[in-house]
């Protein structure tokens, strides 16, 4: 009986909502209860975008994540805003190519991944989000079954863009192996 609360946060345009969706679908594929809730409103234009994802063995109550077990911070304002809300013992994933400072908390596990740099080095500049997700899945034991990761991706990437499937999966593998 477990519930994991994820909070994805970054700039609008970094694929925050998309990566949350991949994770939610992964949960669905694994037979879990899931919810996905985006921030919506004017703050999305150039400002911070975030989304709450809950994956649980039980029916999901409130879809709002206020104390994340896992925080994915893709820019400094997001880390500043949400660092202190992370549940003790939780995890923080930081895109260290965009966030120079270290996490202050000492009661959480922190993973620094230079996702944006890894993405541009590998000529997949827009897929920093997927690199981070690869790492998140690995650290939360979600990457053991690559098939369900692949199936989740298939649900999120429309048939029209099927050629992007492998590219996204590769980005996730990059994160997993970092």
């Amino acid at each position: 009986m477990s519930t994991t609360n994820y909070l994805f946060a970054g700039f609008g345009g970094q694929g925050i909502l998309f990566s949350g969706k991949v994770l939610a679908y992964k949960g669905l594929m694994d037979g879990k209860n899931v919810s996905w809730l985006p921030s919506y409103g004017p703050e999305m234009r150039g400002g911070t975008a975030n989304c709450s994802v809950i994956i649980s063995d039980n029916p999901v109550g409130s879809p709002i994540v206020s104390k994340p077990d896992v925080l994915i911070a893709m820019n400094l304002p997001s880390l500043d805003l949400f660092e202190n809300s992370v549940a003790p013992g939780g995890m923080i994933f930081v895109d260290s190519s965009l966030i120079e400072r270290k996490v202050n908390r000492t009661d959480v596990k922190v993973f620094y991944i230079p996702a944006t740099k890894l993405a541009s080095d590998n000529k997949i500049a827009k897929l920093a989000n997927m690199i981070i997700i690869g790492k998140v899945l690995k650290e939360t034991n979600g990457f053991e079954n690559e098939e369900s990761v692949n199936n989740a991706l298939k649900q999120v990437i429309s048939a029209k863009h099927a050629d992007m499937l492998e590219v996204n999966l590769n980005a996730m593998r990059l994160g997993r192996d970092y």
Partner: peptide, 10 residues
């Protein structure tokens, strides 16, 4: 309400 409209669930 806005939450139910915007959120995704199975």
């Amino acid at each position: 309400d806005g939450t139910l409209g915007q959120m995704m669930e199975p």
